[in-house]
């Protein structure tokens, strides 16, 4: 599966005095089993970009192609696009509305027109995949804890069996362990073969998880590449007001202080470099 952006531009309220261009001339290819992180500060256009991925927004100019087919063309089923590319919004728990968790998770599959037996099977599977116990299925979603509600909402998208899953800040507002658990969940989706696009502010999370990083700045793709490469531009990331990982910050500071230190972003790499520097380092003069 491949999702291709061809020079996509989106202008909100075009022609009105409030006109604003959120993304400009974006060209990208996503999918094929990658775990991609999409980062950028608030207002960089990353949420607008995400909403183009499943035709919730249509480009003002340019095209979005799913396996070569323009998803905004007449005659292309939006429902099918949205089934294939699942989008989990930020604070997804706010979309829960049904009497029971099971019914809420069933909402997507039902809209797809699946048989009741199929729907039931999918609900069961989705709840299992997000790590919610079965007995929760008949509870009201509003009785769950915050973290569980978020999982239930994600299950509602997973139940549609998307080929690609786009998650907007899935760990927002969670405490450190809740965050860890959520990242582990995202990783498990990826390992099961789903392409992932994760929108995140947290460079620490991104550094640990993503294979590829796309950095948005002022509506345009500023950096796009494997994590190792993107963090080489730590200076530029800093300039874009992005929080580089703490380890990366340390590396930058040590280089500033005149140390010959590699630009690393993982804890293990920093440990190795520091051990070399402080232990085996220079022999006594």
């Amino acid at each position: 599966m491949q999702l291709q952006f061809e020079q996509v531009t989106h202008t909100y309220q075009a022609g009105s005095p409030f006109q604003s261009t959120a993304i400009r001339d974006v060209s990208l290819t996503l999918g094929s089993g990658e775990l991609t992180a999409l980062i950028g500060h608030t207002g960089s256009g990353k949420s607008t970009l995400a909403q183009h991925m499943n035709a919730l927004l249509a480009p003002t100019s340019g095209r979005v192609l799913l396996d070569g087919k323009d998803i905004n063309q007449k005659g292309v089923s939006k429902k099918e696009t949205r089934q294939r590319i699942g989008l989990v919004f930020q604070y997804a728990e706010t979309q829960l509305f049904e009497e029971t968790v099971a019914k809420d998770v069933a909402f997507g599959p039902k809209n797809l027109g699946l048989s009741q037996a199929e729907i039931d099977a999918r609900v069961k599977e989705a709840l299992h995949r997000v790590g919610l116990p079965e007995e929760i299925a008949e509870k009201s979603p509003f009785e769950l804890s915050g973290g569980q509600m978020r999982r239930a909402a994600i299950a509602g998208v997973i139940a549609m069996r998307p080929e690609m899953l786009v998650l907007d800040e899935p760990a927002a507002g969670l405490d450190p362990m809740g965050r860890e658990d959520m990242l582990a969940l995202v990783r498990s989706f990826h390992q099961a073969g789903t392409s992932i696009v994760m929108i995140s502010h947290s460079m620490d999370d991104v550094a640990r998880l993503a294979q590829r990083i796309i950095v948005m700045d002022q509506g345009q793709v500023a950096l796009d590449g494997p994590a190792e490469e993107v963090f080489q531009d730590a200076d530029q990331l800093n300039q874009m007001d992005l929080d580089v990982p703490q380890v990366c910050k340390l590396a930058l500071r040590l280089r500033e202080e005149g140390f010959d230190f590699p630009l690393c972003y993982r804890m293990e790499d920093a440990e190795k470099a520091l051990t070399a520097l402080l232990k085996g380092g220079k022999p006594h003069a």
Partner: peptide
């Protein structure tokens, strides 16, 4: 279910390697 700051984690790892980093390290500086 809490964590320690990244720099503290790094300091702990270095200590485990026998490097005498102070236990007070919490921030990059």
């Amino acid at each position: 279910r809490l964590d320690v700051p990244a720099m503290k984690q790094l300091a702990d790892r270095l200590q485990a390697q026998g490097i005498p980093v102070s236990g007070d390290v919490l921030q990059v500086e």
